[in-house]
């Protein structure tokens, strides 16, 4: 077993475990932070797979994103220190079945598909960043720009949604 496999297993296991914790714990803040650590472990998996830029980016973005998620959880659920023991699940059996089917389906594909030989020749991290830059601002510029535009639109739309009705002039 190569070192890479070992670390992939370790970080992957951590990611899955934290992912499960998200839905096990009763505390909203713990849920959000478990998701954060799951995403961080995924970032670490990227690093193991030598995608340095993406890994670091994932680790950075998720810390902020999930903290924001935590505060929203507290806002909406008024989490009383995680002691609420609230039950917030429905259609348990269906979901569990769907989850298992999804897992085994994807697993079967992963295991039984013929992936062919693995690539061994990887551009180093600096080269990757350079190539990615050329890709983003070259051939894929349009896609990249539309992604930027999308996120801007989403920001504006989300703000508009969140602004109170009276500020839009219609106090119903």
């Amino acid at each position: 077993m190569s070192l890479q496999v070992f670390f992939l297993l370790a970080f992957g296991g951590a990611a899955v475990w934290f992912g499960i914790v998200v839905f096990l714990t009763h505390s909203m803040v713990r849920s959000a932070l478990a998701l954060l650590f799951s995403q961080t472990a995924i970032g670490a998996m990227f690093l193991v797979m030598q995608a340095e830029f993406l890994g670091v980016l994932q680790i950075m973005m998720m810390a902020t994103e999930m903290s924001i998620m935590a505060i929203f959880m507290v806002m909406f659920m008024m989490d009383p220190g995680g002691l609420g023991e609230m039950d917030m699940k429905h259609q348990r059996k269906t979901s569990l079945a769907a989850g298992l089917v999804a897992f085994f389906g994807a697993l079967a594909v992963a295991v039984f598909a013929d992936w062919g030989p693995l690539a061994t020749d990887i551009p180093d991290a600096g080269e990757q960043v350079r190539l990615l830059g050329f890709e983003l601002l070259g051939r894929s510029m349009l896609i990249f720009e539309s992604a930027g535009l999308t996120i801007l639109t989403a920001m504006i739309a989300a703000t508009a949604l969140a602004v109170q009705a009276r500020e839009r002039g219609a106090k119903a």
């Binding site: 507290v74 806002m75 008024m78 989490d79 009383p80 109170q164």
Partner: peptide, 8 residues
């Protein structure tokens, strides 16, 4: 005041 009930 902002319409959201955060933890009081």
């Amino acid at each position: 005041s902002n319409g959201l009930q955060m933890e009081w």
